[in-house]
Amino acid sequence: MTLQTSPTVQSTAAPAGPALDVRKLTKRFDIGNVLKPKLVHALTDATFTVNRGEVVALVGESGSGKSTTARLISRLIEPTSGEIYLHGKNVLKSEPGVASLAYRRAIQMIFQDPYGSLNPAMTIGAHIERPIGIHRGGRNAKEAVVDLLATVGFNPPAEFAAKYPYQLSGGQRQRVAIARALAVEPEIILADEPVSMLDVSIRMGILNLIEQLKEERGIGFLYITHDLASARYIGDRTIVMYAGHQVECAESTELMDRPAHPYTKLLLSAVPNPEAGLVTGDDEARGEIPSLINQAPGCPFAPRCPHVMDVCRKAMPAVTQLSQDHWVRCHLHS
């Protein structure tokens, strides 16, 4: 991996750098009223890059800001602050408000629920033809549909093009969603928990398809998941998120072998481990993700952290570079 993953280094990246470059992306949702202001700090200072031909895994529990990150990048919602660069171009500046067709073509998204993301009244073929019509002028759409369906593993593809979503299983629907995203030849695909609603035996098929698309077509993926094992399986790099903050980032195997942040360690210890069984010793950190409303200063993990120090409750730790592609935000390491 040649990419610089540190946020501090990234900010000096040349325009010819990574395909997608996100800097200090922050989203606060205002859910209060004039008398009782309330801010949900959904995402704070998200900074990372996704290159072509790379899978970046974003791991965290519910409410950690993973999906908010994907929604901000896909520009379904507007960030409170921060920048998104596509090939060095600051897209929030150059195309404020609504994203351009070119941007939407470059960045595609796959959603968690393949039962909700397809229109029950449209055939599979129509789902894939539509983006081709919008983005590519619709030339040779029929052949393209058959090609795409074959790419994502339908056999015979032409037959499936005439089917309706209800005739397909969950795994097949997710393949349709992937084919639809591929239809516009995107550079980056944001995959928001693409396998968590699927049966276990067919999950690997979808993950292997993502890996294959990365290798054969050079597509970059932002793979969002709560499952560390699958992040390690297809993620080249893994970013761990907690309560809207990115707390640790490293090459995936390195992260799982040598986790530095106490939260990463906690997550790893919670992964079912058939060999060790349920170790009923002292529980490490306990409790649950804190409220994201009107957050206290300091590290968000401090209330649960077994190594908490005074400084942790006062200031959010800065990024510490542990090695070339491993950084952590924790006072233990600064």
Binding site: E61, S62, D227, L266, A270, L278, D283, E288
Partner: peptide
Amino acid sequence: DVVVQKDIL
């Protein structure tokens, strides 16, 4: 979530 799951189990 996984951490809560482990706790409860």
